[in-house]
Each structure stands twice: as C-alpha cells, then as structure tokens.
Amino acid sequence: MGLLEAIIISVIAASTPLLLAAAGELVVERSGVLNLGTEGMMIMGAACGFAGAYFTGSTLIGALCGIAAGAALSLVFAALTLGLAVNQVAAGLALTILGVGLSGLIGAGFVGERITPAPHLYLPVLTGIPVVGKILFGQDGFVYFSVALVVAIWWFLYRTRAGLILRAVGDSHTSAHALGYPVLKIRLLAVLFGGGCAGLGGAFLPLAYTPFFIPGMTAGRGWIALALVVFSSWLPGRLAAGAYLFGAVTILQLHAQAFGLGIPSQLMTALPYLATVIVLVLISRARGSAGSVAPASLGIVFVPDR
C-alpha cells in the first residue's frame, strides 16, 4: 500500500463521522431550525450504538441503536423548540449537557469492553486495483452510506417537491404556513432526521473507528460538524468538500509531524481550524454578497397564528 493511498484512506475515515453528523444538521438548518445539540446526540449515538453492537454482535444493529438514540434525543429538542417555542440555541446547548451526562451513565458499564469493528468491503478483483482499489472498494459500510447520504440529500433538496417545501419552510416559515404547509410537522421530521444522522455519526466512532467506548469519545466532533454546515453555505456538495478538507488537514499534519518537520505541534494541531477559516473567507470573498446564504428563518421560533 502506497503512502498516498494510505493517507487518503485515513482521511476518509477521519471525515466520515463529521460528514454524517453535518449532513443531518444541514437538513435541520435548511428547515429553519438550529440544533446546537449535535455533540450531545453524537455521544449518545456512540454509547447506545456500542451497547447495541455489544449485546447483539451486529454492527448494523449497533448503527440502528445509534440512530435511534440520536433521534430520541432530538425528539426532546423538537418537543421544546417546536412544541413549546423555546429558544433553539439554549435548548440545543442544554441538549448537549443532557446527552453527555446520559451517555456517561449508559456507557459506564461498557468501559473496557471491546467489540469486533465494522467489516470492510472486499471484492476479490476490484479491491486489489493499485492505488484506487482500497479507496473505492475497501471501505466500511459507514463510509459508503455517508457518501450516499450526501447525494441523497442533494437530490432531495433540489430535485423533489418535498425538498422544495422543506427549503421554503426554512426560508420563510410565515409564507410556507400561509401556503398551507405544516411548518412544525416538516421541521419535526427534519429534526428527527438530523438527530438520527448525528447518532449514526457518533456510533461510527465505537463501531468502526476505535471499537470500544469511553465517555466523551466524540471529543468535540459535534462542534466541528456544526461549523462545517456553516462552511458549506448549506450546500450538500460543499459540505462533503469541507468535511474532507478538515479530515485531510488533520491527517496531513500528523504525517508532517512523523516526518519530523520541526514545526511547533500546537501550530500543526491548529491547522485544520485555520484552514477551514481561511478557505471559508476565500470562498465568501469570491462569492461576494450574492450566492447562497443562511436559511432566512434559521433559529427563529415559529408559532402558527390561527
């Protein structure tokens, strides 16, 4: 295996949890809801995903448990922000506190346990192709799913009527409501979808990446996922680019250290964050004031007038 190939495989793996969680959040924000609880939903997904796989021995069931856990937590958020018109920022942050605590309680019994990691695809001839073989045909299911998810979200948002309605709800809930669309119901579905995706992104960590559970193992990836949604300007394609950019800089700085370049490690560690900021500034500058911007109703509570 060549070094380049190895690096690309590592980059894809490092980016996948970010991409999964961010893809869900993108849909949520497109519907006009800002759920800052991604970190909490991810870590819940990690804890419950590990528990599911531990008891059943199945990665798939583990992944489903992760999705369910993330969605369940997001339901709490939905009940508050959609049902009771609570401020979304505060509710999202409170959700993170709750998720971190709950996952710690759930996961306490699993610390020190291990499971078999998710299997990687292996196709006799294709996987053996030099350079691209393992990259294209040698990943685990989460990786393929994350790519499919982004494509599906793009297709949904821009090629289906339901996607159009969802965007309309996010851009102006009052107009959408006036047109007779069930704003809150659409947002509920979006929030649940986002919760499921975050849960899956979290579950990826103990199921495929590092097959064990430790409290807090998401280590802030939920925040990065949130930032990536902003980075993407709410566009699915750019979201994938952002996630892979972040993953790539993360991995490359480790390789640069192993080569012994002698640059302060703090600077190297800061590179992924700096890179995203700089690229975002460059994109924004090139785009000028036109281009895609945040959904207009993002973060604003909606209470239908009857």
Binding site: V230, F231, S233, V277, L280, V281, R285, S289
Partner: peptide, 8 residues
C-alpha cells in the same frame, strides 16, 4: 468578506 461568523 461575508464569511459566516459562527464558523470563524
């Protein structure tokens, strides 16, 4: 530059 402040 119009860069979103949440990310930066």
């Amino acid at each position: 530059y119009g860069a979103n402040e949440i990310l930066t």
